[in-house]
Design a protein around this nucleic acid. Structure first.
Lengths: 145, 145
DNA sequence: GTCAAGATATAGCTTAGGCTATAATTCGTG
DNA sequence: CACGAATTATAGCCTAAGCTATATCTTGAC
């Protein structure tokens, strides 16, 4: 509180845009998490059941059901009542992208000295805010070190 | 979709804990943003008015009023009706911590090759998910390069 | 083939964070 | 010092994401 303003103040409008973007990102973050989880479950167990999704996401079963309904609305998943959940092509593509990004973020964190366990923990929240441009920078950094 | 499972599968419980943590972080992220913003406004203009907070956060004025009410509930800010908003000691300390963390995250991103503008944009969302341990790793990395 | 157990869906509630419209208050100007 | 403009507060609405309790459907065991 005793120091001067560090950088030149940013225009209010520009700063507001940053927060708007952060809020937008947040609204798709859950979709990404669920899609990735469903992809993992299908890869591991052959199908994704709502009860397993709920357990792994750490939410109650009706919460997972609601989330799946939203995925269907967004065209990322399909399911019939009392049957397993599957990904559409769009959902599968997204899951793949999210999984790759997660790996890159964890690798970057570890490359700058973050212990693996902490890297995994923090990556879960960080990854959603990593833009394509930043992701590319991470990959270049990891390749060229 | 054609490759094997990359790492050994994580116990469901452990994975759920990661998501639980990410959700907890999210619930304090807005508090942090508002507190930092109020600190900035006081530093720049001598006081933080609700209208300015709203403009810079990119929200409507009643939304900012509600957020300030929550800050007061949490003991981070004080205000009297139709008067400016001020930070408590706890609020000031938090603002300082958030501001420092933001700078470190931006510096780290730039250090691994992210352009400044993108670094600022992504940092706004990333910073909230950076744990103390990760922050320390960032600082060591920046110091020792 | 029936029936109990397990899985999924539905109903209804809560909190948080947005919004618009409007009321109440403060402040600057004449 | 009064009044209009600017600011802040309040009312009431929406959506998303969580929860518990309960209803409905599926399935496996007998």
């Amino acid at each position: 509180m005793t120091e001067d303003i560090p950088q030149a103040p940013i225009p209010a409008r520009e700063q507001a845009d940053r927060f708007l973007r952060a809020r937008e990102v947040q609204s798709v973050a859950l979709l990404e998490d669920y899609v990735e989880m469903i992809g993992d479950l299908i890869a591991e167990m052959g199908e994704a059941r709502v009860a397993d999704i709920a357990e792994r996401m750490g939410v109650a079963q009706p919460t997972a059901t609601k989330a799946v309904a939203r995925l269907k609305r967004e065209g990322l998943a399909i399911s019939r009542p009392y049957r397993g959940v599957f990904l559409t092509d769009a959902g599968g593509t997204l899951a793949e992208k999210v999984r790759a990004r997660h790996r890159t973020v964890v690798a970057l964190l570890m490359a700058v000295g973050v212990p693996e366990e902490t890297a995994e923990l923090d990556a879960e929240g960080i990854e959603h805010h990593v833009s394509d441009q930043t992701l590319q920078a991470f990959e270049s950094f990891l390749a060229g070190r």
